[in-house]
Design a protein around this nucleic acid. Structure first.
Lengths: 210, 210
DNA sequence: AAGCGCTCTATAACAGCGTTACTGATCAAA
DNA sequence: TTTGATCAGTAACGCTGTTATAGAGCGCTT
């Protein structure tokens, strides 16, 4: 008889078991949504009993925590894959579009990161802090703008957070269905507005306004 | 023996029963969070069995839908309570701050509207559309700015949605714990940035930029 | 007035969930 | 070989939403 996925992972140590379970959970989350994320279902998919999940993650909360970290790591990798451009503002814009594209592509992951798809799940403070580090990429990009003298004012870290918040806001409303068929327009408008409010034109040294 | 809350509502017709159940659910949501929103618990609080909930709302999904609508209605009333100011930009700013204040005050309601606190709950398309109508107040305020010639460009409806998205983004990140102790600063920065990007200064007729 | 029928409600049951206790299997060390 | 510990599977508990069942109350018809 062919060995189950669990049996082959078992032979390669606890780490393999752990990733095997996490992979099954990821697949389930992406394919069928958070409602399908049950311990019994994950165990059945991998080919073991729920006891193993308790040994590895000490319960569903631990599993969710691991999945939460995994979601942010995926997201970080994808943002890091956006090629850097000479023009820091253009690069920032690319990051914003990549952010939205990835959120829409893996909306269940996005909901796991910023929504609250599982009844009682609340990530630990430590997990949230490490999750926020995902946005070092964004902060670096804003810092590059600041170095180029493009920032209209404010601390780069706060400017980055502000940008993040605005983009997240549009994406979040879009995922919730509140933007209907005008999501594209609203996203572009928000990006442009934030660009106009946070930065100043690259070629001229003038400050805007009277 | 004293009559239960359900028995007195029962004497006043189905509508009274319905609001009585909805009130209990609201109270539960606000006080103990979405985890406490169980049919058995609601029924026990009111003093009836779960059967009544099935007759009135045909299950938990229907109850959540009603609660969802109720949440938006509450929110709308609170935004409508913000006094209109002669300066349309100042009024918009007040609306933004009221938005955040109310979201933080009733965060469980806010999560119900924009998060996904209950496992399988997805509001119907019709409910989402009617929910979006809550923001007619915001759209009117933006339209007032447009009438005063303060809009930098773009359709007022999209500008309003953009503003909504940005504010929602900050509040959402704040509720998720991602802004730690700098929520105030990021909120102000976002409001100012969106103001600078979407509008032009009130007193001067000049267009900004070169 | 009696009987019928309809609506409403409570109780109990069912499948599913996370969680835990228990039991047997497996394997290394003494 | 025996002992000890770790690990995994089974079964149970209490909870959830949901549904079937059975009884109670009331109005209408005959």
């Amino acid at each position: 008889m062919a060995p189950s996925a669990y049996e082959v992972a078992q032979q390669r140590g606890d780490e393999a078991i752990r990733t095997s379970l996490l992979d099954a959970a990821s697949r389930l989350l992406a394919a069928e949504g958070p409602g399908a994320l049950t311990l019994r279902r994950i165990a059945a998919d991998v080919g073991c009993s729920t006891t193993v999940l308790y040994r590895m993650f000490s319960g569903k909360a631990g599993l969710m925590e691991a999945l939460y970290a995994e979601a942010f790591e995926r997201f970080r990798r994808r943002l890091a894959a956006v090629p850097v451009r000479p023009d820091p503002l253009a690069y920032l814009s690319d990051l914003g579009r990549a952010y939205r594209a990835n959120a829409l592509a893996d909306r269940n992951y996005y909901r796991l990161m910023f929504g609250e798809p599982v009844p009682g799940f609340q990530p630990s403070d430590e997990a949230v802090v490490r999750a926020a580090e995902t946005f070092a990429i964004l902060e670096d990009a804003v810092a590059a703008c600041a170095a180029a003298g493009l920032l209209a004012g404010g601390e780069p870290r706060h400017v980055a957070a502000s940008l993040w918040a605005a983009i997240h806001g549009v994406v979040s409303l879009e995922l919730a269905g509140h933007l209907a068929d005008r999501a594209d327009e609203v996203f572009d408008a928000t990006l442009i507005a934030m660009g106009g409010g946070l930065f100043r034109a690259p070629s001229t040294g003038e400050k805007r306004g009277p």
